[in-house]
Design a protein around this nucleic acid. Structure first.
Length: 367
DNA sequence: AATGCGGGGCG
DNA sequence: CGCCCAGCATT
């Protein structure tokens, strides 16, 4: 009795998959190179990010920083500015740290195997597998969201992929399948299949090159897999921003705490448990800012994150008389930034929207 | 093992 | 709206 995990059956599966990939792969820029730096860059950008969203960022970064030396030598603020809008900014900060570590401690030589790669900051089990296989053809699996979906359906695996121990199960399965040659193409083919055919809902089984191998399909349970129990609960947060403006300068704040948007710029922030804005006016009255005038309050900006729903109001406060605006900014841990210098600073998405959709019209500055 | 971290696109 | 996306670090 043959099983679906017979060596012969697996060999056929791999062969079909590689053939399909060779004919159907999308021509993406990071697939036209073997430069580990560029593959690395693409993998970090594509963490929890669709190709369509990350592609333009990849092109920008390769253009600005063609080598790991250029990337490592750049100021982190410049890198964050290029990363602006992509989200998960720790990816950029970690990659910058890592690049400098490679330059300083590894003589600029990128690690060339799974074990060394996974030691690096920002490189976990998936990315180490992807880099080892794609750059060096090391026969290790690369288990990402696509791989979970494809493998769970091919072999009808109901293990909960939210549980940590399930990764090991899929990694071992992948290890038993990944061919000793063309490991990189194999892993990319699995992911490509997951991204274009084996979709989360309504997979295109009719055109799937592996449909004859798929146990889930034979039992019509594709849409039940993979099993993922974890539910994300969304927390509401209420932000009031005071946007001080004085003689063409804005009072900006660089975010540093363990919170969202670390390293990006916003304004003086007051957060409250619910929709309560009375405190704003108290702050203004008892302020050391000099003569202040509340010019306008924005409509509420709703900004959805994976785990938070932000309710943001921007309050534009004109400082008409001030003894020393910059000094008062410093006292409040703010920086006075001229409107013409805004474009060089990384800002969160809702701040970007406010600046360039509302404030730019009020004060008529260029974006 | 559980939680926090962005933003966008899809049905 | 809910779910997912070439995940990782921290606790």
């Amino acid at each position: 009795m043959k099983t679906k995990t017979d060596a012969t059956s697996i060999q056929k599966l791999v062969s079909k998959l590689l053939k399909w990939y060779g004919l159907n792969y999308r021509e993406l820029p990071w697939r036209a190179t073997k430069d580990p730096y560029k593959i690395w860059l693409s993998e970090i950008i594509l963490q929890q990010t669709r190709v369509a969203q990350g592609l333009s960022y990849y092109l920008k970064f390769v253009k600005h920083y063609p080598t790991i030396d250029a990337f490592a030598g750049a100021p982190i603020d410049d890198i964050l500015k290029l990363w602006q809008g992509l989200g998960y900014y720790s990816r950029a900060r970690n990659m910058h740290k890592c690049a400098n570590q490679i330059i300083k401690e590894m003589n600029g030589q990128f690690p060339d195997n799974y074990t060394d790669l996974i030691q690096l900051i920002g490189i976990g089990k998936y990315t180490a597998g992807a880099l080892a296989s794609i750059c060096y053809d090391e026969p290790v699996p690369a288990i990402d969201g696509n791989a979970y979906r494809v493998y769970s359906r091919l072999f009808e695996i109901y293990s909960d992929i939210s549980i940590g121990s399930t990764f090991k199960e899929f990694f071992e399965l992948g290890l038993s399948i990944v061919p000793s040659q063309n490991a990189g193409d194999f892993n990319q083919a699995i992911m490509e299949l997951g991204a274009t055919i084996c979709l989360p809902t309504n997979p295109k089984c009719n055109t799937c090159p592996l449909n004859n191998h798929c146990v889930a399909r034979s039992k019509k349970v594709q849409n039940l897999l993979p099993v993922k129990s974890k539910k994300i609960k969304v927390k509401n947060r209420y932000f009031d921003y005071l946007v001080f403006i004085h003689e063409g300068h804005l009072a900006l704040h660089k975010r540093k705490s363990q919170d969202i948007w670390q390293g990006l710029y916003d304004f003086l922030l007051f957060e409250s448990d619910k929709d309560r804005k009375s405190s704003i006016f108290d702050i203004l009255k008892s302020s050391e800012w000099g003569h202040v005038e509340l010019i306008a309050s924005s409509e509420e900006y709703k900004h959805i994150l994976t785990h938070q729903k932000l309710h943001i109001n921007f309050h534009v406060v004109q400082v008409t008389e001030s003894k020393d605006f910059k000094l008062i900014c410093q006292d409040n841990k703010l920086e006075a930034v001229h409107l013409s210098d805004l474009e060089s600073l990384a800002v969160p998405k809702p701040v970007e929207r406010f600046l360039y959709q509302e404030l730019s019209e009020m004060y008529n500055f260029q974006t």
